[in-house]
Amino acid sequence: MKKLIRITTIPGAIGTLLKGQLNFMSKHYDVIAVSSSDNGKLKEVSKKEGIQAYPIELTRKITPFKDLIATYHLYRLFRREKPFIVHTHTPKAGITGMLAAKLAKVPHRLHTVAGLPLLESKGLKRKLLDIVEKTTYKCSTLVLPNSFGLKQIIIDLKFTNQSKLKVIGNGSSNGINVEHFNPETISESQKEKLKLELGIQPNDFIFIFVGRIVGDKGINELVSAFDSIQTKNKVCKLLLVGPKEEHLDPISSVSESRIKENINILDVGMQKDIRPFLAISNTLVFPSYREGLPNVVLQASAMELPCIVTNINGCNEIIKDGLNGLIITPKDTKSLKSAMTFCLNNPQKLKEMSRASRNIIIDLYSQDIVWKELLSLYKTLEK
């Protein structure tokens, strides 16, 4: 079988964001995963996916010297393994992997774009990140934005030629396992047990956010909007599910204080299985500044949750305003507060949006659709 090397910056991206996909591809290609070792997590992912894995240390920060070393190690790996395809994900894996693959004369070099962090950067940092992105695309033979809106942004920024861009299926890097993300997988007893643990009362209305607790996910606006709403409506709670990243994009000290002091804000941190938390919630709130095609909105929708999202690429492709959720202005606390209040005060409309949510995901973003489309693309490269 021809060799396929898939590269991510951290193994969690393979084990979570691409879960199952590399195992599926291993039936058709000799698949090798490359990522940082991350204290043995790469080995765990390798075992679960049933594929080979090689650790090469990659960082998520701007570290030119370490990046050059990683590029050299990747180059040596490609020269030894002679892959037919190298396919990278995440910005750092993209620049090191695509550059090394071009130097090693790998025939097919694919890079998936699942968001552009540079959109929130300014000044010299923005100029540097623009150069890195353009270089990544120049070294690749095909660039795969994971949403149509992201594709248009890349075209507008003139990062590469339109002919080099392709969206797989309807978007998404991995699709959604709709059997796993199904409200029926969580029993009533599981929900009641979790509510008891969190101190949630039977009549409480639960807003939930799932993701990194950072500034560019709109956490400052979310905490401010909720703090204002719940002073007048004591039966609502905000559930925050996800890790903090103070070293990369910290939230404001005001938001930190509100989270600690407001007893109706439940900060539960990172969770291995988010489904029980989605199952006890009424609405997902996802006021992000930038995305590719956000997995959490797909997952919540598959769990029959209406979603409040910002009017940005990816989010506004999954959510149709008034059909399966509400679309708000980015970075706008007033708009967010209005949408959250609407959900609180319109239970019938919320039920209608809930009913529509899951079917849209099944029809457009099921894992089978994305995996088969990507495999089909790989196969066309063999002709």
Rank of each mutant, 00 (worst) to 15 (best):
50 G>Y: 07
350 L>K: 10
179 E>Q: 13
157 L>T: 01
201 Q>Y: 10
204 D>F: 15
196 L>C: 15
353 M>Y: 10
60 R>Y: 02
249 D>A: 09
357 S>E: 04
98 M>A: 12
94 G>L: 00
81 E>K: 08
18 L>H: 11
264 N>V: 09
4 L>F: 01
307 C>I: 02
25 M>Q: 13
167 V>D: 07
349 K>W: 11
128 L>C: 07
50 G>A: 13
298 L>N: 09
40 G>S: 12
70 A>H: 03
207 F>R: 01
125 K>G: 11
203 N>I: 10
212 R>P: 01
293 L>R: 03
261 E>Q: 13
2 K>T: 06
153 I>V: 14
328 I>Y: 05
202 P>I: 13
373 E>S: 02
57 E>F: 14
253 S>P: 01
88 T>S: 08
307 C>G: 05
143 V>N: 12
186 I>S: 03
65 F>M: 12
262 N>A: 14
315 C>D: 00
316 N>L: 09
323 L>P: 00
135 T>S: 15
240 L>F: 07
82 K>N: 02
77 L>Q: 06
323 L>I: 12
76 R>C: 10
30 D>R: 09
199 G>H: 08
27 K>S: 12
303 M>P: 00
52 Q>I: 12
175 G>F: 05
165 L>E: 08
333 T>L: 03
265 I>T: 11
71 T>R: 01
50 G>R: 04
13 A>I: 15
275 R>V: 00
225 A>E: 13
3 K>S: 12
182 N>Y: 00
376 S>I: 10
139 C>K: 09
301 S>Y: 11
91 P>T: 03
12 G>I: 07
67 D>F: 05
142 L>R: 15
274 I>C: 06
245 E>C: 07
377 L>F: 15
36 S>H: 01
145 P>E: 09
349 K>G: 08
136 T>W: 02
226 F>Q: 03
43 K>G: 10
335 S>M: 11
295 N>E: 03
155 I>N: 11
209 F>C: 04
177 N>F: 10
197 E>F: 02
314 G>H: 02
7 I>S: 07
6 R>S: 09
70 A>Q: 06
382 E>C: 04
318 I>Q: 02
348 Q>R: 14
155 I>P: 05
117 P>N: 10
21 Q>V: 01
56 I>Y: 05
217 K>M: 00
242 G>T: 05
260 K>E: 14
346 N>M: 05
83 P>Q: 04
338 S>M: 12
158 K>F: 12
367 Q>C: 00
139 C>M: 14
93 A>H: 02
289 Y>M: 05
289 Y>Q: 09
23 N>M: 01
294 P>W: 02
324 N>R: 01
376 S>L: 08
354 S>Q: 15
128 L>M: 12
106 V>K: 07
256 E>D: 10
24 F>D: 05
150 L>K: 04
60 R>P: 10
86 V>A: 06
42 L>S: 07
260 K>W: 06
228 S>M: 15
212 R>Y: 04
30 D>T: 14
298 L>P: 04
143 V>C: 10
202 P>E: 08
210 V>K: 03
165 L>T: 10
